[in-house]
């Protein structure tokens, strides 16, 4: 049963991209365990505002685990200690009375801190702009049922497509690699007949952009998939490697 706990929150505070950051510890009393983690941060911020202090800046929006906006490293894990969820779906029942909870922003070269827990993830958008699409314009496309797609293939594409672009994979990776993110999109589109046509060009363009933006290399550690809130599978990285190598051989 949910009850009330007293906690300490050790939060990364950083005034701006170039400012020196530091941890600040705040005490919170009587926090209901049914509250979500972000609601706990809201309570902390209300407390800070009441004391005329600067509230903690953090990204959040849908609060139902799908927009990919929230991005906190909680007790050493992206999106916290629970599995297959985002920070907004983490609840205070995962923490004990008297616990000190450490909250940090994503830490990755390609995701510079903007303020406190808010980081700049435009690098992911840029990778998408390099090739994360099927080149069709609006209108003039065939009937949706014109090309049947085997259900297992469609399901596999859907699993890859469930990526929310939150950046946890790159943040979890010791090399700061974006391979899982790139692999998810390359796989989704390479699996489907609509995306196959451009598969080779896409894999090359997205990998090249990823390298250019300062993401690290993949060394198959698997931290990305373990921490992914949507359980995107490592098999996608294998498929990306295959697509990429085939594309290179074709050159």
């Amino acid at each position: 049963m949910d009850s009330y706990i007293d906690i300490k929150v050790r939060v990364w505070r950083q005034a701006g991209p170039k400012a020196q950051g530091h941890f600040e510890t705040y005490e919170l009393k009587h926090v209901f365990q049914g509250a979500s983690f972000l609601e706990m941060i809201d309570i902390l911020n209300e407390q800070l505002v009441a004391e005329h202090k600067d509230p903690v800046t953090y990204d959040h929006d849908c609060r139902e685990g799908i927009c990919g906006m929230c991005s906190m490293y909680v007790n050493g894990h992206p999106h916290g200690p629970d599995s297959a969820i985002t920070t907004c779906q983490l609840h205070m029942r995962k923490f004990k009375d008297g616990e000190t909870i450490t909250v940090e922003p994503w830490r990755s070269r390609a995701f510079p801190v903007i303020k406190d827990l808010m980081v700049d993830r435009q690098a992911y958008d840029k990778i998408m702009q390099a090739g994360g699409f099927v080149s069709v314009n609006t209108g003039g496309v065939p009937d949706a049922n014109a090309i049947p797609i085997p259900k297992p293939v469609a399901d596999e594409a859907m699993d890859a497509a469930s990526c929310i672009g939150c950046g946890a994979c790159a943040a979890a990776c010791k090399n700061g690699s974006a391979m899982l993110f790139v692999a998810a999109k390359v796989s989704q589109l390479a699996l489907l007949p609509q995306g196959k046509i451009e598969a080779a060009a896409r894999a090359k363009a997205m990998v090249a952009k990823m390298d250019e933006l300062g993401f690290g290399n993949c060394t198959n550690t698997g931290a990305c998939a373990a921490e992914c809130p949507k359980s995107v599978s490592l098999a996608n990285i294998a498929r990306l490697n295959r697509e990429f190598l085939c594309a290179k051989f074709q050159d």
Partner: peptide
């Protein structure tokens, strides 16, 4: 629906 399928939206099948 036609447009979305052409874009690679993985609708249930």
């Amino acid at each position: 629906i036609d447009q979305c399928v052409a874009q690679g939206v993985p609708f249930a099948r």
